[in-house]
Design a protein around this nucleic acid. Structure first.
Lengths: 336, 336
DNA sequence: CTCTAGCAATCGATGATACCGAGTGCTAGA
DNA sequence: TCTAGCACTCGGTATCATCGATTGCTAGAG
């Protein structure tokens, strides 16, 4: 596709631009590469690269800037996700060594960690609750007409749903329903809408039905929780305050973020780390952003994703390294 | 303190500046007030107001801008929290009419609502769990060595804590502990570290102790959850991208936000709506922000707060109106 | 004593102008 | 095929004048 020298020039431009955020000129490239060619030669290559869509010029007589395509080439030709500085690697190890119990808290903290490592915004998608098996079902009465179903899952997550009751149901009956449901749902996964055999007691069976229905409610299934950490760092990445606003507005919509993460990771086959650059995904407000995501696995099964969102001119090797380490480590910790 | 005319001039300046964000000149004030005086007179008054600290001049030959003190006067002389447009009032009514069950979801949505009403960031502080009474306690085993304590409270909130066990404890024993704890803690509030009588079974009593200790863990008590909605709108309020970053960074620290809300509402006695303007609170990064908060009450008892965070030149009457209506309505809904 | 009209002075914003320098494209020659 | 040289482009910066909004002050009217 690109001959060696063009590739080297492109690499140099991308690297320099990532670091300085300034258009980079031919002289700079000639100096920083070991190609032993003059700026004039570099100029010719750069002009060619521009024709082919890898570079762009903000205006005549300015240096070149990578296009999305340019970044794409740069990312694709990376052999692996670079290495994290030892300090950071240690930081990650420490974090997960001390990570204790509670799933949601841990995922939340993980997003802060990742954001701190990269200085971009971090996204952590929680494992879908469907994957875990039920450990306990309990129906707790709150008021005469309202009860709450609390389901504890094997991974420490909790599903809950409100229940509106037609009539006052005694505590004993709720307790009976709890026992009955626990007995028959325990060990199953939430997604297969398991059948629960009738007890014979009509009132009880009715109650059980209501509970099951509320559990199957797709509104609750949407509970694909995503943790966004370090969103404020996006403000440092752009200088147009309006861009910042748009990006933050997107990050506030959990649903959008979730499907974005899904899309990016699906689109990329199962390459491990997936990268979406600039306008490659559909979201117009994020056209100036790139996303680096990786799935994390529990017991060998991919269950969630971690990723970072930064400006298109993000430090890809570093971001990929951080995402790789964190996803690997997170999976390992959750598998234990 | 200020004679009538000075007050009128100050009011006019504040109102105009809130609307236009431009320094306002004497001619403007003379035109928009019905004082029937000339710009020259207004100028004298404005000069006086500046000497007294209510106004400031960005530079000679620009109009005046209110100082924090100026806003403070403006807010203090407001008779009440202004009226919300009918459309918005209806919007709030609709929202709470359709608000269903789940506490956390509802508080989250409330923050979005309030942010939408004011176009500032909204803060909703959840009722401290200590206030609610325990409805059910359950200890659920997750792995051999880990269990989870799930406490359902009367207000529909859920407290959970991880438990690390020294040895494998049988399911029956966990169940026994659950029943025992439910029986003795049910109806009590979490904050009084209630004593639970011994059962005689040593292993069981040991387990109960562990659970109680984990519940008393102050790390969990910190669970004063705060919901921040519409943080992205802060990006529209400032044009210095760095200010935006600082403000957002603060909003990401739940702990800081919680104590800030507390401080503001405590400082103000029990006036209902409390307002903190500019640097009145201590947080330097929020020096260009104001906060409007109001407590909301369940069964007549103040349990949480709702508020908005906006630029110092926020629309106070409108913000106060929105906060007042939402807090009132939220309390009413939760009391039902 | 208060208010106002008039007026000079102030100072940011805007726009024109010139200049510099970084960087390019092209061409001729090695 | 590469490079040196060179004219050219064009954004950024500095300078300068101008414009306009607004002020502070003073003198005079009510």
């Amino acid at each position: 596709m690109l001959d060696d020298r063009k590739a080297a020039v492109l690499r140099a431009v991308v690297r320099e631009y990532i670091e300085t955020a300034q258009p980079v000129g031919s002289a700079h490239v000639a100096r920083t590469t070991d190609l032993g060619v003059s700026p004039a030669t570099v100029r010719n290559e750069m002009a060619a690269l521009e024709r082919e869509g890898y570079l762009a010029q903000p205006h005549t007589s300015a240096g070149r800037v990578p296009t999305d395509l340019g970044y794409r080439f740069f990312v694709d030709q990376l052999t692996g996700p670079g290495a994290l500085p030892a300090v950071q690697r240690q930081q990650v190890r420490d974090f997960f060594a001390h990570a204790h119990g509670e799933l949601e808290q841990m995922l939340h903290d993980t997003s802060s960690l990742l954001s701190g490592l990269t200085s971009y915004a971090a996204l952590v998608l929680a494992p879908p609750h469907e994957r875990a098996t039920v450990r306990s079902v309990q129906v707790v009465g709150l008021t005469d007409r309202a009860a709450m179903v609390v389901i504890v899952l094997s991974n420490g997550a909790i599903e809950k749903a409100m229940l509106e009751l037609d009539a006052d149901v005694g505590d004993e009956r709720l307790a009976a329903a709890s026992t009955h449901l626990s007995a028959h749902l325990g060990g199953t996964s939430l997604q297969d809408g398991a059948r629960v055999p009738a007890t014979g007691d009509q009132r009880l069976d009715g109650l059980v039905d209501v509970v099951l229905k509320s559990m199957g409610d797709p509104a609750d299934r949407e509970h694909d929780h995503v943790f966004v950490g370090g969103a404020s760092r996006m403000a440092a990445a752009f200088d147009a305050v309006d861009t910042v606003r748009q990006v933050l507005a997107i990050l506030e919509q959990q649903y959008v973020v979730v499907s974005l993460l899904r899309e990016v990771i699906d689109h990329d086959g199962d390459q491990g780390i997936a990268v979406s650059i600039g306008a490659e995904h559909g979201l117009q407000p994020l056209a100036e952003c790139s996303i680096v995501v990786a799935p994390y696995e529990i017991e060998g099964e991919p269950v969630g994703t971690v990723g970072v969102l930064g400006p298109t001119r993000m430090n890809y090797p570093q971001a990929m390294a951080a995402v790789a380490v964190v996803s690997e480590r997170l999976g390992r910790t959750l598998s234990a």
